[in-house]
């Protein structure tokens, strides 16, 4: 047992997401359910999150009505399922600036946010490019950057340049530049022995198959298959995956992909009254289960 408990909390989902967005090269292979989740880390007197989801009031109705994003619930409702409220959250690690990860900072009034400086700087650059290059700023809501201005003014936005050890005691962040986004990062929750580490991968890994894809074609058991969407490169995604795996002793189950529906098959989970999933990755000493 470590010093932190970790849960993955679903706050919405897309029933049918094109598989090629999840797995590089998986064209014409249909659709998969894509849960929208954030991760919560609790222990050592801290409540931290990896990402904050998006705020339904701005474009949620548009997403729901037109594109099949379903069953959005507020952080207040979602966190209450594990006995917490957004006011309890003191730290948020933003894995990257896409709207479904960085789009709801307002709901966490007491949190300090960590993001890679490169993530902001390169989005600024991308937004300044001519129209013909606008693909490079896909899925970013300028409103989230605008809200970042307020966070900065309130001294609640910490910009990182690469990795940071012990952002919280035993919790590190690591950068994966020019991968899924320009300044993506992942979070590693360590224990002292090094044998009970967990990696919260953000969107650097969407699903198990990004780590344990079939290697039959080249006569190996498994291989890394990067996610489909990258403004950087799939090469950098694979390199980041290798680094994550190294941090957990190549035990694939310890790299947590938050968009993976099958987390419930691998970890204790329950479905709430709202039809959303809570997955319990690990429990700290003395912490009671929220899924049993």
């Amino acid at each position: 047992m470590g010093q932190y408990s970790i849960w993955v909390l679903e706050y919405s989902y897309v029933t049918n997401y094109h598989k090629s967005g999840v797995l590089y090269g998986a064209h014409n292979q249909g659709y998969v359910k894509l849960p929208y989740c954030y991760a919560l880390i609790k222990g050592n007197g801290h409540v931290a999150m990896v990402d904050v989801g998006y705020n339904n009031k701005d474009y949620g109705k548009h997403l729901a009505d037109k594109f099949g994003v379903e069953n959005w619930r507020s952080p207040k409702v979602v966190l209450s399922e594990i006995g917490l409220s957004p006011d309890d959250v003191d730290t948020v690690f933003i894995s990257h600036a896409h709207f479904d990860h960085f789009g709801n900072v307002e709901d966490f009034p007491k949190a300090t946010f960590y993001i890679q400086e490169r993530e902001i700087a390169k989005w600024v650059w991308a937004m300044s490019l001519p129209d013909r290059m606008r693909w490079m700023n896909v899925a970013v809501d300028p409103g989230d950057i605008v809200r970042g201005v307020d966070l900065a003014r309130q001294k609640r936005l910490v910009m990182l340049d690469g990795a940071m050890e012990n952002a919280l005691p035993g919790v590190d962040v690591h950068a994966a530049f020019d991968s899924h986004t320009y300044g993506s990062m992942w979070v590693t929750v360590r224990d002292q022995s090094g044998k009970d580490n967990w990696v919260l991968a953000g969107d650097l890994v969407y699903v198990f198959d990004n780590i344990e894809g079939s290697g039959a074609a080249i006569d190996v058991e498994t291989l890394y298959v990067p996610v489909g969407l990258a403004v950087g490169s799939q090469t950098n995604l694979v390199l980041a995956t290798e680094e994550m795996m190294k941090q957990v002793g190549y035990e694939a189950r310890r790299v947590i992909p938050i968009h993976e529906e099958r987390l419930k098959d691998r970890f204790p989970s329950r479905i709430t009254d709202q039809g959303l999933r809570i997955t319990e990755i690990c429990l700290a000493d003395g912490e009671k289960s929220m899924v049993r």
């Binding site: 094109h18 894509l34 474009y59 594109f67 994003v69 700023n137 896909v138 970013v140 409103g143």
Partner: peptide
Amino acid sequence: TMVDFSQACCSCAQ
């Protein structure tokens, strides 16, 4: 729309 969703979570044809 404020966000370009074309590669994000949806596609019209779906």
